[in-house]
Design a binder for these strands. Sequence first.
DNA 1: ACCAAATCGGCAACCGGTTGTCATTATGTC
DNA 2: GACATAATGACAACCGGTTGCCGATTTGGT
Lengths: 152, 152
Amino acid sequence: MLETAPDRSQAVSDLTLQIFQLNSQLLAWGDRFVAPDELTSARWQMLGAIALAGAPQTAPQIAARMGTTRQGAQKQIRLLLEDGLLAAHENAAHMRSPLYGLTPQGAAVYERVRARWQAQAAAWGAELSVRDWQAAARVLRHLSAEIAAQEQ
Amino acid sequence: MLETAPDRSQAVSDLTLQIFQLNSQLLAWGDRFVAPDELTSARWQMLGAIALAGAPQTAPQIAARMGTTRQGAQKQIRLLLEDGLLAAHENAAHMRSPLYGLTPQGAAVYERVRARWQAQAAAWGAELSVRDWQAAARVLRHLSAEIAAQEQ
DNA sequence: ACCAAATCGGCAACCGGTTGTCATTATGTC
DNA sequence: GACATAATGACAACCGGTTGCCGATTTGGT
């Protein structure tokens, strides 16, 4: 790569700026989207991680699934316990590390939001082909892998 | 949209998750990338906003250019002033709102990082065609516009 | 069974960013 | 020129997240 390729570096650079912008747009939009259900983007994602796991999980398991840290997950878990959306269950395999699962209320809230989100995502996607969306996701996955490879 | 389109909503949903993941990957990578120059991702972005403006800017102007808030920009400006990478100039048009411009040191640091970044972006982009990167950026811009339109 | 190493929860501090408030300064309208 | 309104800087509080530390527990190797 002695000769830099301005077009290519410019295109990659453009994409990264788009990613930063969309990230903040999506977070702000998500906070408004789930506000009627008394959630935030962060708690929505937390409920999703537990719901998709299919079974109660320990705090470190949830953190790993979300790609965040144990302490960050525990902050949100504590808040969701207070809200009654999560419940701690005895963990036979670990005395100090309970399993956190959705309460009936938590499952109901998540299902309600999930259905609304699916309709919204379909509406956003309506003007482009499924192929376009999948192609974009593939490019992003490629970039993600390049970065991960560089982290050694 | 009575009949939801699972494929399409799934594709959009996948893309949003990719965006969240890439955002955190890029921020973490950026912090490491500019650490040798005693910068962080946030301060790098701030220097870029001022450099691309081409002339010293007031704090609210910089904030608008970065798509963030006045207060957030001022936090970083204060730190960059302490580091000697920014300097405040008298603003003839406004007594209390100085113009912030890069110091020679700030310009040198930014140029050094910019050149390294361009090479890195080209390397990341090498395995896909410029057309692919541009197509992905177009899809992201489309999604960004959809969200913005919904914000009323 | 023992013991070193890894894991876990809890706490505190920090980072980057947002929101809200207040006093001060510009701006625009009459 | 006077005056309501907007813009600005400063400060504080908060949110979501990370890092670092500590003591307690669990795990794994011997």
